[in-house]
């Protein structure tokens, strides 16, 4: 009792956006940022997700220095980039690297939603491609954890073309007979959903994640109707045959480990 009281003093409790329960900050952290009452999955940042999945200390980052610049002279983009770097503590909207999961070596990419809604510009496209190429060179499986608002508008068509570029590299990866697992997290939409996030051998999703091509607001405006409940949520997509498996955060590492093991020779 006393200990809980103390926790409350340290950090303010957080209201679950799904069930409105007041969750002590510590308890939420301990529960992998999942609401203990309704299992709502709060967003994890990229570093937290990496820590959650990979073996302690095994992560070696690739291309940490790659950064974007204002290639179209788009008004305000430079400032946005700087702000995003400050806010997220990350250089760009994806972190890539090599790690092990229960001893299974793999290349992974994890998108960072606090960096301009993890939109895909030149750097995200390039880092995904380089990660895929690394996995091919090392003949090891690839895991990409997506969350994204889509192609980055401030980089115009160069951003849109990253969809084609990442899809092309994954075509080669596919030819090489290697395993690619995609994990879709909240939210994965637009150009990322319509390119590398969908092109995996096995597609996993976190519960309750919004996943789709068009955003719900645009759809609502276009058709002028209310959208069905839970529309475009991962449960809805599972029902419609678009993903392989829903994985609760607490089961994520175990599921990955099992899938990786099942794809290992002998």
């Amino acid at each position: 009792m006393e200990k809980e009281e103390e926790e409350k003093k340290v950090a303010l409790p957080i209201n679950c956006p799904s069930c409105s329960a007041r969750i002590p900050a510590e308890a939420l952290q301990r529960n992998l940022k999942v609401c203990p009452k309704c299992q709502h999955h709060f967003s994890l940042n990229a570093r937290e997700r990496i820590d959650l999945m990979v073996d302690n200390g095994s992560f070696q980052e690739f291309d940490a220095d790659l950064s974007s610049f204002n290639l179209l002279d788009f008004p305000g983009y430079q400032e946005k980039l700087e702000k995003a770097q400050e806010l997220s503590g990350s250089r760009e909207a994806i972190i890539t690297g090599l790690a092990t999961v229960d001893g299974h070596k793999l290349v992974l990419g994890v998108m960072e939603s606090s960096f301009m809604m993890a939109s895909m510009g030149s750097v995200v496209g390039e880092k995904v491609c380089r990660a895929v190429e690394q996995a091919m060179e090392l003949s090891c499986p690839l895991l990409i954890c997506s969350c994204s608002g889509g192609a980055r508008m401030q980089e115009g068509m160069v951003a849109l073309m990253q969809m084609a570029k990442t899809s092309a590299v994954l075509g080669k990866f596919n030819q090489a007979g290697l395993l690619y697992i995609s994990l879709l997290t909240h939210p994965t939409t637009g150009g990322v959903s319509a390119s590398f996030a969908s092109l995996a051998d096995i597609i996993l999703a976190e519960p309750g994640a919004l996943i789709g091509f068009a955003g719900p607001r645009v759809i609502k405006q276009t058709i002028g109707q209310q959208l069905p409940p839970r529309f475009q949520r991962s449960e809805f997509l599972l029902e419609h045959g678009m993903i392989d498996l829903l994985v609760e955060r607490s089961q994520l590492k175990e599921t990955l480990s099992s899938l990786l093991g099942l794809h290992q020779e002998g």
């Binding site: 084609a164 899809s167 092309a168 075509g171 390119s195 789709g212 091509f213 068009a214 645009v218 759809i219």
Partner: peptide
């Protein structure tokens, strides 16, 4: 652009587009 509608999402708009991108590239 691709049609933003309920049926389009139910039937996997993102999946359909990504497949075409990969196929054309090779």
């Amino acid at each position: 652009g691709a049609y933003p509608g309920i049926g389009a999402e139910e039937r996997g708009q993102a999946w359909a587009i990504s497949q075409v991108l990969m196929t054309l590239s090779a």
